[in-house]
């Protein structure tokens, strides 16, 4: 136990301020953002992540949002297991033929108002996998998308930026 406490104190708080361009975005949105989250989402924003066919690269970066350095919970962003509690669906991958139905069901199970963010080049337009017998292409081919975040995979800051942009 002592070792654990020791390590905790030695590590301190490693959470970083956002990079300037994101930070500026936050400032610009400022009061508006806070108000929006307060009014629309009662202070917290709950995300359900859906992998609709990705290579798992995008998932690694979404995971990283939860590490202590990005610590997305400080913005009130939380990941949930059930679409029923979600405000936002964060969807990755080209939509595979075999995930099409599950993605639609997840979308339908999410209460309105809901937002969909397509993450990664694959989520935007099918990326390197394109459109084929097994890949239907970008997320918007299957469900309505509000915002896209490019990158292969987009780094955690880009994903955060995208989420904050949606709040505008």
């Amino acid at each position: 136990m002592l070792r654990i406490l020791h390590q905790i104190f030695r590590t301190g708080i490693v959470t970083e301020p956002l990079p300037p361009e994101v930070e500026k975005g936050v400032e610009v949105i400022g009061a508006k953002l806070e108000e929006a989250i307060m009014r629309r989402f009662r202070r917290s924003l709950t995300i359900r992540q859906v992998d609709a066919g990705s290579c798992n690269g995008c998932e690694l970066e979404i995971h990283a949002l939860n590490n202590p350095i990005y610590n997305c919970e400080r913005f009130g962003i939380k990941f949930t297991a059930s679409p029923r509690f979600a405000d936002i669906l964060l969807v990755t991958g080209p939509v595979s033929m075999n995930m099409e139905i599950a993605l639609k069901r997840t979308y339908n199970a999410t209460p309105s108002p809901k937002f969909v963010i397509a993450v990664g080049d694959c989520g935007c337009n099918g990326g390197i996998f394109g459109e084929s017998y097994a890949s239907l292409g970008g997320i918007s081919k299957v469900i309505p998308v509000d915002i896209v975040i490019h990158g292969c995979p987009p780094p955690p800051t880009a994903i955060l930026k995208g989420i904050l942009k949606l709040m505008e």
């Binding site: 992998d51 066919g53 990705s54 991958g93 080209p94 595979s96 033929m97 075999n98 995930m99 599950a102 996998f129 084929s132 017998y133 097994a134 890949s135």
Partner: peptide, 8 residues
């Protein structure tokens, strides 16, 4: 579920 037709 994530079959994307990679080999093809």
């Amino acid at each position: 579920y994530v079959h994307k037709g990679i080999e093809k």
